[in-house]
Simulated scan of single mutants.
Amino acid sequence: MYDFAPTAELEPAERYRQLADAADALTAGEPDAVANMANLAALLWEFVPGLNWAGFYRMVGGELVLGPFIGRPACIRIPLGQGVCGTAASTGETQLVEDVHAFPGHIACDAASQSELVVPVLRDGKVIAVIDLDAPEKARFGAVDAAGIEALAARIAQRI
């Protein structure tokens, strides 16, 4: 049995450090990318408070395709350059969106989502996936969240 849970009352930077350590331990030695993404989605849900969606979109054939996640059913395919996820994948840059309704071309998979953080996962300089976090409150994510998820993405890029 795996029991990875954050220590109560942590500073956000420490919470993200513990998340990355748990992700490293949980995926070490497992070659199956889908299994690793599924466990990572569960870890994200455990470690990042205030989410209504956490998971992955994988780069497949020049578009993003839904991967393992926790939350309400989601869009299955997202073209590059469209929405927050497609923008992150096409630019290779983190997208930190305080108000999804103000983001041009936002794709609303869950009407409850108000803010979003999408971090590209890069392997050998190419986007292979994005980590997508949605929250039901505006401005839920900040620079510490972005840095923490970017560190996680770098750490697990060879395992998904």
Rank of each mutant, 00 (worst) to 15 (best):
M1E: 12
D3M: 13
D3H: 14
P6N: 07
L10G: 05
Y16N: 04
Y16V: 10
R17S: 12
R17Y: 10
Q18Y: 09
A20D: 02
D21S: 10
A22T: 03
A25G: 05
A25H: 08
T27Q: 00
A28Q: 15
V34M: 05
N39S: 11
L40S: 00
L43Y: 01
L44M: 14
W45F: 04
E46R: 14
E46D: 13
F47L: 03
V48M: 00
P49S: 11
L51D: 03
A54S: 15
G55S: 07
V60S: 09
G61Y: 02
L64P: 02
L66Y: 00
L66I: 09
P73M: 08
I78T: 10
L80M: 12
G83A: 11
C85E: 01
C85L: 04
G86H: 06
G92E: 09
E93P: 00
L96M: 07
V97N: 04
V100T: 14
G105P: 10
I107G: 02
D110A: 09
A111I: 15
S113K: 01
Q114V: 04
E116D: 11
L117A: 07
V118S: 06
L122F: 03
R123T: 06
K126A: 15
V127P: 04
A129H: 02
V130I: 07
D132K: 02
D134H: 05
A135Q: 03
P136G: 10
P136T: 11
A139N: 13
G142M: 08
A146V: 05
A147W: 00
I149W: 02
E150N: 09
A151C: 10
L152R: 03
A153Y: 02
R155H: 05
I156G: 00
Q158S: 15
Q158G: 13
R159W: 03
